[in-house]
Amino acid sequence: MHRQIATLFGIGWLRPAPGTWASAATVAAGYALHRIGHFPLVALATLVVLGVGFWAIVGYTRGMAPGDRHGIDRPEIVVDEAAGQLIALCATSAGFWFAGLPREVIPWPGIVAPFLFFRLFDIWKPWLVGRADARKDAAGVLLDDVWAGIFAAAASIAAAGVSHGLM
């Protein structure tokens, strides 16, 4: 079960760019969760994926030697991307929730911006993202994506503020 969850039930085996595939699938799932239960459901799913994802990463990487260039952060492990992407999507979902908009309303920039920002920070690995990635342990596998998700959420909020301020 660790392997299935860590690879998001096989998405992690897709090539090229398994992290991008996982992020895209998570955006679709996050959008569906938002439409079903608005921000509370997206937030709950984020917490569940964080907890279950960490459990799966610890179990999947147990006994792996950090010998190659990936260490234990193997390309097929993508549940961490799902967790980070959900964090980024929480910003959009929360924005609509607190604005009192119905769950059916979510324009495409509110989905695309968190996706693009998350992928940017996950690949670029600035500051805390890179520090977490350098840990080379199970917590680091997840934490770099948590930080990338937090940065993407902040960037999405800033971009929305600029966009709505200009409109």
Rank of each mutant, 00 (worst) to 15 (best):
T7W: 05
P107Y: 07
P102K: 01
L120Y: 13
A82C: 11
W108Q: 04
P107W: 11
P109Y: 04
R135P: 12
Q4D: 15
V42L: 04
G37T: 05
P75H: 02
W55A: 15
P40D: 06
H2T: 14
D133N: 11
D122H: 11
I57P: 08
D68H: 11
P107H: 12
V58A: 15
T61N: 11
I5Q: 14
G71F: 08
H164E: 13
V112W: 11
P109C: 12
W124A: 10
W108E: 07
H38K: 02
A153P: 12
A134E: 06
W97V: 01
G110T: 03
D137W: 11
G12A: 00
R74E: 10
A153I: 09
A83F: 06
L142M: 15
A22M: 02
L116I: 08
R131T: 00
G84M: 04
I72D: 04
I150C: 12
A134V: 02
R3F: 10
D80S: 10
A56M: 14
A148H: 09
W21G: 00
I106L: 14
F9A: 08
G84N: 10
A155W: 12
W108V: 14
V52K: 09
A160T: 15
D80K: 05
S163H: 14
L14W: 02
D145M: 05
A159K: 08
G130D: 10
G19R: 02
G100A: 07
F39K: 03
A154E: 09
M167N: 11
W147A: 05
A25S: 10
A6P: 09
G12M: 01
H38M: 00
L143T: 03
I157K: 12
A139R: 09
E81I: 02
W124I: 12
P109R: 06
